[in-house]
């Protein structure tokens, strides 16, 4: 069939998870300026670091529940809510049909880096929505520490390890991470994430080896002694946020505070995280938008969404609905939109899909527009494009429109709050 303008037809098989890692290592763009390129994969699935891939992915219901808590936390932080209000949200219970066959990777992304001397490889989730990096450290056993697949990092075995002392600038630099002096004048930290997970331990310094040619001497990170939450499949987290404790902040002198990443569409393909590259004018092929910041949540990378189109038709949503800004977050799975924008997107998408009579499927957690594509060889969707200030437009492919067979968007807090 000839595709109507504004529509895209994809093979239904493209929604199925691949069982083998089909991608060779990605060829990340080589740009002038120093650049360390790390292989980036889905947290679970055939391309995940071999040591972790066999771990069972959390259920979709758990993933969406954790995602809802994270999104609510981010929204409250940007709105300047106090710390106590930030926590304690109760995500709506999600009932999920069991007959799913779709790609249910947990849609979080990891890189592998080595810590210490000699280096111990650690699988770390990349997170533009937080700053402090951490790994679990020996001695560390359940229940204080979750059962990670890779060897635990043992500071006592690393010749380049040092605990950060109390009172020094590094400890003071933790600021919002509840740094405090613990035993033997070491600098303790606590990080509480929006999905309810947490890590606490001793703030530390060691060599982080990113690639065979790039290492960060004296990298500051959390040596976690007690963690709780959905950490299956990772050994820790690599914070890429805007504040100083993040990897980006700590390597600004080397990589200029510029970085890029590509998140693979399927667990059977790979992407990359690249530190450095020329700052200034974006290379060819990019559409760029201004980076903004939120005084109440300085960690986040914020841009200004200005419009959405479905099937090539702009939605009639007032620009004021987007006035609150848009956080660019690798750790949030589903895009959240202000209610008026989401309602308009959902209505336009549903009416475009109606002409194809795909059977409806029950809502899935926060995703309320779902279809059952079983039995269809090909699926036709209206294109969805997000436009940002300065005209940068993200025209989404099918894998950016649907997830779990559902429209992969949800409503967030108040319009333009």
């Amino acid at each position: 069939a000839v595709e109507a303008p504004g529509y895209v037809t994809v093979s239904a098989a493209s929604f199925k998870p691949g069982s083998t890692c089909s991608a060779p290592d990605p060829v990340a763009p080589q740009r002038n300026g120093t650049s360390a390129v790390l292989r980036l994969t889905h947290r679970h699935g055939p391309c995940a670091p071999s040591r972790t891939s066999s771990l069972a992915a959390p259920s979709v219901a758990d993933t969406l529940r954790a995602d809802q808590r994270r999104a609510e936390y981010i929204l409250r932080r940007v709105s300047g809510a106090g710390a106590q209000q930030l926590l304690g949200s109760k995500a709506a219970a999600a009932t999920v049909p069991a007959n799913w066959g779709y790609d249910i990777g947990t849609l979080n992304y990891v890189v592998t880096a080595s810590l210490g001397t000699p280096g111990v490889a650690q699988t770390l989730e990349v997170d533009t929505g937080s700053d402090l990096s951490w790994v679990q450290c020996k001695p560390c056993s359940a229940p204080a520490c979750y059962n990670q697949k890779d060897p635990l990092f043992d500071p006592a075995q690393s010749s380049s390890y040092a605990a950060v002392p109390c009172g020094g600038s590094a400890c003071a630099g933790l600021g919002m991470y509840e740094s405090s002096c613990v035993s033997s004048a070491q600098c303790g930290y606590v990080v509480r994430y929006g999905d309810g997970s947490s890590t606490t331990g001793v703030y530390s310094s060691d060599t982080l080896t990113l690639t065979s040619t790039d290492a960060v001497q004296g990298f500051l990170f959390g040596c976690g002694r007690a963690q709780s939450g959905l950490f299956t499949g990772i050994d820790g987290l690599l914070g890429l946020g805007r504040l100083q404790p993040s990897l980006v902040g700590q390597t600004a002198g080397t990589y200029g505070g510029a970085f890029s990443y590509c998140l693979p569409t399927k667990p059977s393909t790979t992407g990359y995280l690249a530190l450095g590259g020329a700052s200034g004018a974006a290379p060819a092929g990019f559409s760029t938008t201004q980076l903004l910041s939120s005084p109440s949540a300085p960690t986040y990378y914020i841009v200004m969404l200005t419009g959405i189109s479905v099937g090539g038709q702009p939605l009639s949503v007032p620009a004021s609905a987007f006035a609150g800004g848009t956080v660019v977050d690798t750790g949030t799975v589903v895009t959240r939109l202000p209610p008026a924008a989401y309602a308009a997107l959902r209505s336009a998408f549903r009416s475009s899909m109606a002409s194809y009579s795909y059977p409806a499927a029950p809502p899935t957690g926060i995703l309320d527009t779902c279809y059952n594509f079983a039995g269809y060889g090909a699926v036709t969707l209206p294109t969805v494009a997000l436009t940002f200030s300065s005209g940068a437009t993200l025209t989404l492919g099918a894998d950016g429109i649907l997830s779990f067979g559902c429209l992969a968007f949800a409503a967030s807090g108040s319009d333009g709050g």
């Binding site: 569409t265 590259g277 990019f286 848009t326 940068a392 950016g400």
Partner: peptide
């Protein structure tokens, strides 16, 4: 307030420097 989630970022190279965020399609 909106959050651009990772489902919508997939396959784009997202480039962040001190002043801007750039998106390049079909990058991985």
């Amino acid at each position: 307030m909106a959050i651009l989630g990772n489902v919508q970022q997939r396959s784009f190279e997202v480039r962040i420097d001190g002043a801007s965020v750039g998106f390049k399609p079909n990058s991985c």
